[in-house]
Design a binder for these strands. Structure first.
Lengths: 338, 338
DNA sequence: CGCATCTTTTGAAACGTTTCGAAATCGCCC
DNA sequence: GGGCGATTTCGAAACGTTTCAAAAGATGCG
C-alpha cells in the first residue's frame, strides 16, 4: 500500500496508468457487471500502485456517499452509547460507514445538515421534532427513528416497551410495600403528554398505574433541568417535601445516578428505593447495584441500522421494531420501611 | 420556512427564481465580497421561499464541506465523551459542523474514510497509528492528534501531563503508606514502551517512580483485555497473587470502575486503595468516590477543535497544547493498613 | 460629455465520480 | 469469410457547487 502524497490521485490517474477509460475504473471499484478479468487485474494493480481512494464528495454528488448518519441528542448519555455500539456492529461488514452527528441546539439543524448530502440514510433520536416534518424528511432520504411511539408511514421506527417496562417497575415497588412513589423525569419539553416520546410514555404509565392502584393522590412528579447534574437538586427537592417518597422511579439510569448520589450524600443510602431505566453498565456495578429495566439498547441500535440498510436496498413500506423490556432487580430497590 | 419536497432544490432554482446568475447566489450564501444590497435581498427571499439548502457533496467536491471529523476509538469510554463534549462546544457558533467517526477495527480505515473528502479537517485519538503515516495524512488535510507525546511537524497535538499526573498519584499513595502498588493498564498494544501513548507514558512513569523509591521489586503490572469488563478479571488475578498489592493504580477511570467492582464483589470494599485517571463524572459520585487525575478532557477537546479551526484559517506551523493534570483526592485512596 | 476607474454581475470551466447509449471487439455458425 | 449476438470498452453528459476572468453598469473627473 503506497502512501498518497501531494495532490490526491483521481480516477483519471488510475485510468491513465491502467490504460483504460474512467468508466472502466469506475466499474471495477464498484464491482459492476461487465468487466473482463484482464481489465480488472490491470485496474486493481493501478489502484494499488497509486494508492487511489475514491472521493466521497464526488460519489455523493453523483449518487451515494456510503455513509450512514446517526444523530444523537446527548453524546454523554449512557443509553446513547449502547445505541451507537449496536449500530456500529450492524454496519460493520457492509460497504457503509457510520458517522455520528451530535445535535447542538435544535435537532432540525443537525438532521438537515445530515440530509444535505452527507449521508445516504439517517438514524435519529429526536424526541422533539415534528412528525410531519419527519415524514417530509423521509421522503427525501431514508430515515429510521428511535424512540417514537407513533405509526409513521414515511420512515421506520425502533421503540422500546416503555409501558411494559414502567409497569414492571411499579409492580415491583408495590410488591416491596411502597405506596409513596415519586417519578423523577426529564424536562417538560421531552415529556409532553401525547408527544409519544419514551419519557412521556413512562410518565403517563406511572400516572396510570398509580391511579389504578388508588394512589392518585400520592402521585409526585419531579423533573431535572437540562444539565445532567441537576437530578441531584431535583431529588433534594423531593426529599424535602412534607410527605417525601419512599421510592423514586427515575426516568433512566443517568437520572437514577443523580438520585443515588443525593441520597448517599445525605447519608440515607439504602433507605429509599431507587429504580432506573436502560440497564446501563453502571447499574450492574456492585457499588451502584441499581434496579433497572433492560430494553436492549444495543439491539435497538443494531436493528435501526439494519432497517436503514434494508431501506437502502429498496424497501419502502414502513417497518417498526419493538424491543422487549425486562426488569433487572438489584439492590437499590429496597423494601419499604413503613 | 417552507419544507422541501420531492426533488431537491438547487442553486440554479434559486438563481432562476431570483432572476440572477448562479454565481450571484453562490456569493450571497457565502457572504462573499461584491454583492449589492438589492441583489442580496432578492436572493435571500428566493432562498427562503424555496427552502434551499446547499449540497454538501457539491461543496466538498469544489472546496470545503464545512465538516470537521472527530475519530474516536471507543465511543463508550467516558473520557471520550468529555472530548466530544468539549469539541462540540468549541465548534458551536462557527460555520463548521462536527461529525464523529467511531473507529471499527483498524483506525487507518476510519481516518482514511474521513480524509476521503467527507471533512475539511480531522481530530483523531489514535494511539496506534504510525507517526510517519500521520505526517502524510497531515499533508493532505489538517490534523490534530489527541494524546500524542511526540513532536510532529505536520499536525498539531493536544496532550495531557501524563507524567505529572501519574507522579501525583504515586506520591499520594506513598504518603498513605503504600509500597505494594500495582498498575492495571490497557492491553499491550496501546502501552508499548516508547510509543508515546498516554498509557505507555503512565506505565513508564509508574515504573520509574517505583524504581526511584527503591521499590523496583514490588512492581506489579496487570492488563485488562480489550473488553471493558475484563478489568475485573485482571483485578481478581492481581488480588490472588501471593503478595497482593495494597493499592491499585488504574490506567483510567473506566478500568478503576472494574477494579472497584471486583473489590466490592469480594467484600473488601475500602480495604485496597484504588485510583483512576481522567476524573470522569463517575469518580465524583458519592458511591464511587474515586481518587482520580483531572486532565480537563473537555478543555482538551475544545482546544483540539480550536487548533483545527486555526489550521483551516491558514496556520501551518505545528502547535501543541498541554493540559495540566491535578490530582483529585477522594475516598477510594485509603490509607495502607500495614 | 468622454474616458478611466470602480463596483456589480455573469458565463463557463472546473471538481471527481457514475451512468447511459454507442462503439468496438469477440466468438460462433452457416 | 461474412453476418450476428453477446460481451467488453469507451466517450460524454450529468450531479451542484465555486471560482476566475471578462462583461456590463456605475461613478467620478477633467
Amino acid at each position: 500500500m503506497s502512501i498518497t502524497k501531494g495532490r490526491s490521485v483521481t480516477i483519471s490517474d488510475v485510468a491513465q496508468t491502467a490504460g483504460v477509460s474512467r468508466a472502466a475504473v469506475s466499474k471495477v471499484i464498484r464491482n459492476a457487471y461487465g468487466v473482463s478479468p484482464a481489465m480488472r487485474e490491470r485496474v486493481e494493480a493501478a489502484i494499488g500502485e497509486l494508492g487511489y481512494r475514491p472521493s466521497v464528495a464526488a460519489r455523493a454528488l453523483r449518487g451515494s456517499s456510503y455513509r450512514l448518519g446517526l444523530e444523537i441528542p446527548h453524546v454523554s448519555a449512557r443509553f446513547m452509547t449502547q445505541i451507537m455500539e449496536g449500530a456500529k456492529q450492524a454496519v460493520a461488514g457492509t460497504p457503509y460507514q457510520l458517522v455520528l452527528a451530535p445535535a447542538h441546539g435544535p435537532e432540525y439543524d443537525t438532521l438537515e445538515s445530515l440530509a444535505d448530502g452527507l449521508v445516504d440514510g439517517i438514524i435519529a433520536i429526536s424526541p422533539l421534532v415534528d412528525p410531519a416534518w419527519l415524514e417530509d424528511l423521509g421522503r427525501r432520504i431514508p430515515v429510521v427513528m428511535l424512540g417514537r411511539h407513533d405509526h409513521p408511514t414515511g420512515y421506520d421506527t425502533v421503540v422500546g416497551d416503555d409501558i411494559g417496562g414502567t409497569r414492571a417497575i411499579m409492580t415491583h415497588l408495590f410488591d416491596l410495600g411502597h405506596r409513596r412513589i415519586a417519578h423523577l423525569t426529564e424536562p417538560e419539553a421531552v415529556t409532553r403528554p401525547g408527544s409519544g416520546t419514551p419519557h412521556a410514555v413512562r410518565l403517563e404509565t406511572y400516572r396510570t398505574v398509580m391511579t389504578e392502584a388508588g394512589l392518585a393522590d400520592l402521585i409526585q412528579i419531579a423533573r431535572r433541568e437540562d444539565v445532567p447534574d441537576l437530578a441531584r437538586a431535583a431529588t433534594a427537592d423531593l426529599l424535602a417535601r412534607p410527605e417525601p417518597p419512599t421510592a423514586i422511579v427515575a426516568g433512566h439510569d443517568d437520572i437514577a445516578m443523580g438520585v443515588l448520589a443525593e441520597i448517599a450524600a445525605t447519608g440515607r443510602h439504602g433507605e429509599i428505593a431507587v429504580t432506573g431505566y436502560d440497564n446501563t453498565d453502571l447499574a450492574a456495578h456492585p457499588l451502584i447495584d441499581l434496579t433497572s429495566v433492560d430494553q436492549q439498547g444495543m439491539e435497538m441500535g443494531a436493528q435501526a441500522a439494519t432497517m436503514l440498510l434494508e431501506r437502502l436496498q429498496g424497501r419502502t413500506e414502513p417497518r417498526r421494531y419493538r424491543a422487549t423490556a425486562t426488569l433487572q432487580v438489584r439492590g437499590s430497590s429496597v423494601r419499604s420501611a413503613g
